[in-house]
Simulated assay, not measured.
Amino acid sequence: MKLLRPVVLALLLSVGLPALASDGSGDPRYTIQNPPAFAMIGDLLIARPLLLAATVIGAGAFVVSLPFTALGGGVGDAGKALVVDPAKATFVRCLGCIGEGFERQE
């Protein structure tokens, strides 16, 4: 019984601590970016309004081009390029981050 307790404690510490030390999420396939304050301010005042405008313009271009892309079979690709990607960059990405905030590493 005296030997079991230290072995269990050592196993728990060796398995649990690397997962906690990686990035806080417990999953080493994800990284968390920690941008500086000036990047957050620039992103808030400059990049987000421009990306919002790109999302709106892209949605309009998608609607206009929809008959042609439907004939060509590229509706999904056009929707992703014109609407989804700018919207993800506008609303999903963390403030000041370069990527989407939580980027999956494979």
Score class of each variant (00 low, 15 high):
Pro18Ala: 00
Leu82Pro: 00
Ile41Tyr: 10
Ala87Cys: 10
Gly58Thr: 00
Ala53Cys: 07
Pro6Gly: 05
Ile57Gln: 09
Gly24Leu: 00
Met40Ala: 01
Phe62Glu: 00
Ala89Leu: 08
Met1Lys: 04
Met40Ile: 07
Pro86Glu: 07
Ile41His: 09
Arg5Ser: 15
Gly101Glu: 07
Asp85Val: 09
Met1Trp: 13
Thr31Ala: 11
Gly58Ile: 01
Val83Lys: 00
Thr90Met: 10
Ser25Leu: 13
Leu45Pro: 08
Gly24Val: 03
Lys80Asn: 14
Ala21Gln: 06
Gly74Phe: 14
Ala47Lys: 02
Thr69Glu: 15
Ile98His: 14
Pro86Cys: 06
Gly16Ser: 14
Cys97Gln: 00
Pro28Ala: 04
Ala10Asn: 04
Val83Leu: 11
Asp77Val: 12
Leu95Phe: 12
Val15Ala: 03
Val92Pro: 03
Val75Ala: 02
Leu12Ala: 02
Ile46Tyr: 14
Thr31Ser: 07
Met1Ala: 12
Ala87His: 05
Glu100Met: 04
Ala54Trp: 01
Ile98Glu: 07
Arg5Phe: 12
Ser25Thr: 14
Ser25Cys: 06
Arg29Met: 04
Ala53Tyr: 03
Gly16Ile: 11
Ala53Val: 11
Ile98Val: 04
Leu82Thr: 01
Arg29Thr: 14
Ala53Glu: 05
Glu106Gln: 14
Pro28Leu: 02
Ala47Tyr: 06
Arg104Met: 13
Ala21Thr: 12
Arg104Lys: 04
Gly96Met: 00
Leu44Phe: 15
Gly96Ala: 03
Ile57Tyr: 03
Asp77His: 14
Leu12Met: 15
Gly101Ser: 08
Val56His: 09
Ala54Phe: 04
Ile46Lys: 11
Leu17Asp: 01
Asp85Gly: 09
Leu9Trp: 14
Ser22His: 11
Ile57His: 10
